[in-house]
Amino acid sequence: MTPAEFEQAYERLAAALDAVGETDETLFLTRLALLLADACPDLDAFAAALDAAQAGLAPAAGE
């Protein structure tokens, strides 16, 4: 994806989040992640993205 396309992806994601609304936000984002997992060339690519997305976030309590 070119930087210009990535920027459009950013904007479309923002617009989709606004269209979906706050209630279904988490479900929407999780569905999106699953569909993108299917679009990944292999599991390693998806696992790397999962790790990167988690990095820097505080782990949930109880873990």
Partner: peptide, 8 residues
């Protein structure tokens, strides 16, 4: 908007 803020 909320969506723009989340993505930002």
């Amino acid at each position: 908007s909320r969506g723009e803020r989340l993505v930002r």
